[in-house]
Design a binder for these strands. Structure first.
Lengths: 167, 167
DNA sequence: CGGAATTACTAACGTTTGTTAGGTAAATAT
DNA sequence: ATATTTACCTAACAAACGTTAGTAATTCCG
């Protein structure tokens, strides 16, 4: 709290004119971002039909949200376990719903015979590892825009590293 | 320190008969695991020739190390930033060397015309995201062994999600 | 311009944290 | 059996932490 206050140029005790508690800050960050991600994936599953387009859009949305506020994303990804017990349980439900959203896309892809993911949970977790790991290395000053990152990730996730024979 | 001591059934003050400081514990965990990973990747680059085999072995080694001690791996992945400044700088160098090891594999793969990764840094970071994310979900009680996880990851990383036309 | 509302301050509190010091008990070595 | 070493204890310390209470300063509004 003293570090946050120092960033703002005020005393730690002054923060309590604006917030209720440190936990409230964490809850706001985590739930606001979770809600944003959930809204994005729900829209993807509602609006799009083509599984490839769904996946591409879901990845782009995720990358845009994560890179849109790196500080919040970093807190969201690293600190969610420190939510108070009741909020933590609620949060985990949201995470699971989000994963389910990606699973739905993979199921659609299999039905359309464009994706092949026998172990969908594994595939979804690996996709999420890629999009979430962006907080470890992304910089707005870097040479890739969020859309380029999303495009790279989509290609990596769908076609992998192997040289494409048909090209 | 009180939590660690409680796990051991002793008082926090008693820990100091066995260790120097809390920082020492963190340093030991981080550098021991970094050294282990570096030894593994160096051996892969020395011993193997075939890039696919290199990558498969590098992934298998990483997964084996990470799943071999989940507690240490979790601390290693999440807490390395809390190393004291000098140790942190040293640690970052080791991380970079490890990434370089993977980059070397991708370069070999391109020379052999089996891999295609124009942006190698991006590809390496995405590979590392997958192997490191294991700490988020792996359980020894789960239905996948570390070798199976490594195999799945290798397949995902090399061929992606798309249905293989040649099959 | 004065009063109300808002924001920020200082001081303080209770709790938590990492660690030290001195003492005691247990284990080990001679 | 005695001496030494090791491990653990209690007690304590200083610093850090999240937050409250009362007061002061600033801003806003009629």
């Amino acid at each position: 709290m003293r570090d946050i206050a120092a960033e703002l140029g005020i005393e730690a005790a002054s923060l309590y004119s604006h917030i209720k508690s440190k936990d409230e800050i964490l809850e706001t960050i985590c739930f606001r971002m979770a809600d944003e991600l959930l809204r994005a994936i729900d829209e993807v599953n509602d609006v799009y039909f083509n599984a490839e387009e769904k996946l591409a859009t879901a990845i782009r949305n995720h990358v845009k949200i994560v890179t849109g506020d790196l500080n919040s994303s970093t807190v969201f990804l690293r600190e969610w376990r420190r939510l108070p017990a009741e909020k933590l349980a609620e949060f985990v439900k949201l995470r699971n719903k989000y994963e389910d959203g990606f699973t739905q896309i993979l199921i659609n892809g299999e039905n359309e015979n464009v994706f092949e993911a026998p172990d969908k949970k594994f595939a979804v977790l690996t996709i999420l590892s890629a999009v979430n790991w962006i907080t470890e290395w992304y910089s707005p000053k870097g040479n890739m825009t969020p859309d380029e990152i999303a495009e790279h990730l989509f290609r990596f996730i769908t076609t992998g590293l192997r040289v494409k024979i048909t090209e």
